[in-house]
Structures are given as C-alpha cells and as structure tokens.
Amino acid sequence: MELLFASAVGILTAAGLYLVMRQRTFPVILGISLLSYAVNLFLFASGRLAVNMPPVLLKGVEDFTDPLPQALVLTAIVISFGMTAVVVMLSLGAYLSARSDRIDLNDTEKTGDTRQ
C-alpha cells in the first residue's frame, strides 16, 4: 500500500508541476490544485499510513493513528481553497481587463528591456 500511496503522490506532483508551467491561467490553477493534493497527502503521510485506527478516543480501542498531521492538513485544505479562490478571481479579473488569459507579461522571447 505504501508503494501505491507514494506513487500516487508522485504522479499528482508531476501532473501539477507540468500544468503549473503552462502559459494560460486555467491550467495553472488546475496545476496548483493538483499540487495542493500532493502536498496535503505528503504531509498527511508524515503520520504514516494506518487503516482502521481513526484518532477518536472510543472505549475499548487502544491504537490510534497520528492525529497531528491530520489537524494540520485539515486547515491546509481549507486554506488551499481560499488560495484557489483568490487565484481564480485574479485570473478572471486579469482576463476581463486584458482580454487574454496568458500569464506571461511579455511574450517576446527577448528578455529584459522592460525597464526602459
């Protein structure tokens, strides 16, 4: 199971990284969301994987999984929603104002000269 978990995190990371490096806002947002999944899963995994051991103190139950990463990831999920929402609005605002959803400021391959 560890192998499946690790590979899933890896695949999400790779897909997220690839999409983040695209030149339009929408795929970048998708990429950020995928990266968020990957990061959250990775953080969650720092408590190691456990089946049928929820950290809820019930009578007669002795083994619990690590609650701390779960608490941290829970807020991380909500915060990543906030972040996604802001980024979506930014991209929407930029698209409406500039009529383009490109994310690169200057499209010419030549660099520099923005200062003059």
Binding site: E2, L3, F5, A6, S7, V9, G10, I11, L12, T13, A14, A15, G16, L17, Y18, M21, A38, F42, A45, S46, R48, L49
Partner: peptide
C-alpha cells in the same frame, strides 16, 4: 517541462516511500 515534472514526481514519490 515534462521531463522536469516527471523528475519532480519521481523525487516526491521516492521521498514519500522512504518516509513511509
């Protein structure tokens, strides 16, 4: 970009597996 992304993915997968 794909090569970099796949390298990154492999690295994260390896790290996760090592940690787990």
């Amino acid at each position: 970009d794909g090569a970099l992304a796949i390298t990154g993915g492999l690295a994260v997968a390896g790290l996760s597996f090592a940690m787990l």
